[in-house]
Amino acid sequence: MSGVLIIGDNEKAAIATAIRSALAKPMPWDKMRQVIVDDRDGPTNTLKLDERPDPDRIDALRREYPTYPVQLGSYVAAISFEEQPSGLFRHLSISSRVPGKVPNEHAAKMVLEAFGFSGYPPSRPYRVWVEEYEPGRVAINFVELEPS
């Protein structure tokens, strides 16, 4: 089963609202660093469910600093902003209604453009990884440094 990506006028309006909402409440670095996985010594570009630190703490932080999901056909894209030592980062997580699937490169590029990323791949400092967020469910994550 392949995915269906829809980015029409209604979705564009929902994206604009989600970005404004997320930008109004970025996760501060002092909170963010409590839940990140530091893999600098051996980056894998994947994060399995059992590798996530303190799921209860992550859930509590996400209630305080939520992600804002937008349905885009058979995909869901969730936007948030995070303060990190090098500046404010835009974070987009894209998942599919099909378990174990993420969007292909063409669909990911279109979603990134719709959410205001600099391009695909992004031109500013960025990172990409695949994360298991529920058993058998994965999302592709993009973070990019916002212009100063």
Rank of each mutant, 00 (worst) to 15 (best):
R127E: 15
Q34W: 01
G136P: 06
N141G: 05
L61N: 09
D56P: 00
A107W: 06
V128E: 08
I58E: 11
S21D: 14
N104Q: 07
V138R: 01
T17P: 00
P147S: 15
L88C: 11
I36G: 01
P53A: 14
R52W: 01
S123G: 11
M27N: 05
R62N: 09
I19R: 08
D50N: 13
D9K: 10
Y75F: 15
S148V: 14
E82H: 11
M110V: 08
V111N: 03
E11M: 01
I15Q: 03
L112R: 03
V138C: 02
A139K: 08
R52T: 03
I6N: 12
Q71I: 01
E113K: 15
H91T: 11
R63I: 04
V143P: 01
L145Y: 07
S86A: 11
G42E: 05
I15H: 03
A60S: 10
N104C: 11
E144Q: 11
A18M: 00
V35C: 06
R40L: 15
A22Q: 05
E83S: 10
F142L: 09
P85D: 10
D30C: 04
T17H: 10
V70L: 07
L47Q: 04
F89T: 09
P28H: 12
L47Y: 01
N141F: 02
D54F: 03
E144P: 04
A107F: 12
P85S: 06
F81L: 06
I79A: 05
S95P: 00
W129Q: 03
K101P: 00
T67Y: 08
K109I: 07
L92G: 06
K109V: 08
S74I: 02
K109L: 08
E64I: 04
E113T: 15
S96Y: 02
P103I: 04
Y65R: 12
I94E: 01
P66T: 08
Y65A: 08
S95F: 00
G116P: 15
R90A: 08
R90G: 04
Y126D: 07
R137F: 03
R124Y: 12
P99I: 11
